[in-house]
Design a protein around this nucleic acid. Structure first.
Lengths: 228, 228
DNA sequence: TTCAAATGTCACCGGCATGTAACCGGGGCG
DNA sequence: CGCCCCGGTTACATGCCGGTGACATTTGAA
């Protein structure tokens, strides 16, 4: 999991980066808005943490620039705890906001919560209406007596559908989530993934009850399709 | 957008609920964990805000119970700002965490950010007089018992009519909205779209009650044509 | 290195959404 | 009366999308 960390305070940058690395994240560092945007484009991090007060380009502008390009989760930091700042940051598209000084453990907990919400968390489990997806075990429980073992791609796919709790997820979203930008809009990849997954999950893969297609839109996990 | 608000402090519950209603949310209130869980199952809110300190069942346990069933966005509240509480709450599946006292504006901003991240902030549905157009699902509910599935073009068309809530929309406007510039003023396209849509929506497509023609002008959705 | 699982690529099919053409009937109008 | 514009209707053509099976390639563990 790759995180872009942007702050002009050298010491804080170092100590926060260290904490994140301890927690198992790969950290890209930047010290001003311009180079941060550059690094963002080059490295394509899974999440970005931006300080608001910076030379060159401040955090607000940087957040705006990033949001124009991608939906990457954003957490913003500031020393000031002005109400206006928080509202402005969240309004610009930031997902969370922390006031300095903050505990590294809390930052990490919030990162995890955010990654979980976007379906990118690589630890723990996600449950949905009787089904439990064990991310680390690559398995899904709650269908038959036996847990069903999954492949890494299948887990990433189900994570996204679970995180959206029964609502339709568009094919574009799925493609970018499972394959990243590398996918190149290749729908064939998704067709195969769905096909293979249905062989495992559905009693009758011809008539899907759980993993349903919404034509010209996307896919969804359907609670009505569950036994009982 | 329906929000479940749970807090045992009567005054705070009232004032927060009021602020949320002002912001345009529908609020379900509960004052303890047990009845909150009950209300959650019954109302199926789009988001829940839980206080941690509560009689019967505390916020942690409530969050855990909810998370076993669904991925509904959760925001947790507490007076104590203990680091352990925050980490525990986020670890249990909460998406955000606020320490009392908090500004209602910030709560609302964080709600919006969360809904946006989950994809619920977008115009996912448009309602008009008992009819609900679900854009993501390409479906229309409120006519028969079953939702009616639509095509992408039909959704774009109905989006425009719904947005104009019962007023006539000119053919030119429809053409450019549904087909963009590519339409080239081709009336035939619209004729077909209307015809096919009436086959789905109208009981007697010969005698339209819902999707009416305004000769030499355009089309409109007619509330009088609705049952009941 | 070897082998099996996971993933990517190709080709094809069937169905449906959409586009296109032709025709019908009414009404305004000369 | 005869013309034509309009909206509705029927019929058919076309292309895209999703599903499927077969096969190639990559990856990872033994």
């Amino acid at each position: 999991m790759k995180i872009l960390l942007v702050d002009d305070d050298h010491d804080l940058l170092a100590v926060t980066a260290f904490a994140l690395q301890q927690a198992g994240f790969m950290v890209i560092k930047a010290r001003d808005g311009a180079s941060a945007l550059d690094a963002f484009m080059r490295e394509e991090p899974d999440l970005a943490i931006l300080d608001i007060n910076m030379p060159q380009m401040n955090g607000f502008e940087l957040a705006k620039q990033i949001r124009q390009r991608s939906q990457t989760p954003l957490i913003m930091l500031t020393v000031r705890s002005e109400e206006e700042d928080v509202i402005r940051a969240l309004g610009l598209g930031a997902d969370d906001f922390l006031t300095k000084p903050f505990s590294p453990r809390i930052l990490i907990a919030r990162i995890r919560a955010l990654l979980r919400r976007v379906g990118m968390e690589t630890e723990g489990t996600i449950s949905f209406d009787g089904l439990t997806l064990k991310v680390e075990d690559l398995s899904l429980e709650g269908l038959g007596d036996q847990p069903i073992s999954l492949t890494p791609l299948e887990v990433r796919f189900l994570q996204l559908l679970f995180a959206h709790g029964g609502r339709t997820v568009s094919t574009e979203r799925i493609l970018s989530h499972v394959w990243g930008n590398r996918a190149g809009g290749n729908r064939q990849l998704l067709k195969q993934l769905v096909h293979r997954l249905r062989q495992k999950l559905e009693k009758d893969p011809t008539e899907p009850r759980l993993l349903k297609t919404v034509p010209h839109s996307g896919y969804l996990i359907d609670r009505d399709g569950l036994p009982g």
